Simulated scan of single mutants.
Amino acid sequence: MIPVKTTAGQQVLKDRSIKLTPRQRAALILIDGKRSLVDVLQATSAAGIDRGDLERLFHLELVSATGDGTGSLGTEPTQASPLGEE
């Protein structure tokens, strides 16, 4: 799956209308519609960004999934989080 910023996600980067941790903000910046979830996690792991940070971005509807099947995190799909989708 390749995540993309929603309109709300783009707006939050501009006006900081939703409080994000520095890790969540860094992850949101890296989400560009080209990198898979795995790529984003690998690129940010040294900074301590984890699955929970990405789940929060999905929960806040700042990012959405393209659902193309790439970048599976290797977990069971859940209805609440698209991070497990393949």
Results as ranks from 00 to 15, higher is better:
residue 1 M to F: 12
residue 4 V to M: 07
residue 6 T to E: 03
residue 8 A to M: 10
residue 9 G to C: 13
residue 9 G to E: 13
residue 11 Q to C: 13
residue 15 D to N: 12
residue 17 S to P: 08
residue 18 I to C: 03
residue 20 L to D: 00
residue 20 L to K: 09
residue 22 P to E: 08
residue 26 A to V: 01
residue 27 A to T: 07
residue 28 L to Q: 09
residue 29 I to A: 05
residue 30 L to H: 14
residue 30 L to P: 00
residue 31 I to L: 05
residue 32 D to N: 15
residue 32 D to E: 11
residue 34 K to H: 15
residue 35 R to E: 08
residue 35 R to P: 02
residue 37 L to P: 00
residue 37 L to F: 02
residue 39 D to C: 10
residue 39 D to F: 10
residue 40 V to E: 08
residue 41 L to T: 06
residue 41 L to N: 02
residue 44 T to E: 03
residue 44 T to G: 07
residue 45 S to K: 15
residue 47 A to V: 08
residue 48 G to A: 08
residue 49 I to W: 12
residue 50 D to T: 12
residue 50 D to H: 14
residue 51 R to A: 08
residue 51 R to S: 04
residue 54 L to P: 02
residue 54 L to H: 01
residue 59 H to N: 13
residue 60 L to T: 03
residue 60 L to G: 00
residue 60 L to W: 04
residue 60 L to Y: 00
residue 61 E to I: 07
residue 61 E to W: 04
residue 61 E to Y: 15
residue 62 L to Q: 01
residue 63 V to K: 00
residue 63 V to Y: 12
residue 63 V to E: 07
residue 64 S to T: 14
residue 65 A to N: 06
residue 65 A to M: 04
residue 66 T to Y: 01
residue 70 T to K: 10
residue 71 G to Q: 09
residue 71 G to F: 05
residue 72 S to F: 04
residue 73 L to E: 13
residue 76 E to K: 11
residue 77 P to Y: 03
residue 79 Q to W: 04
residue 79 Q to R: 15
residue 80 A to K: 07
residue 80 A to S: 09
residue 80 A to D: 14
residue 81 S to Y: 00
residue 84 G to R: 02
residue 85 E to G: 00
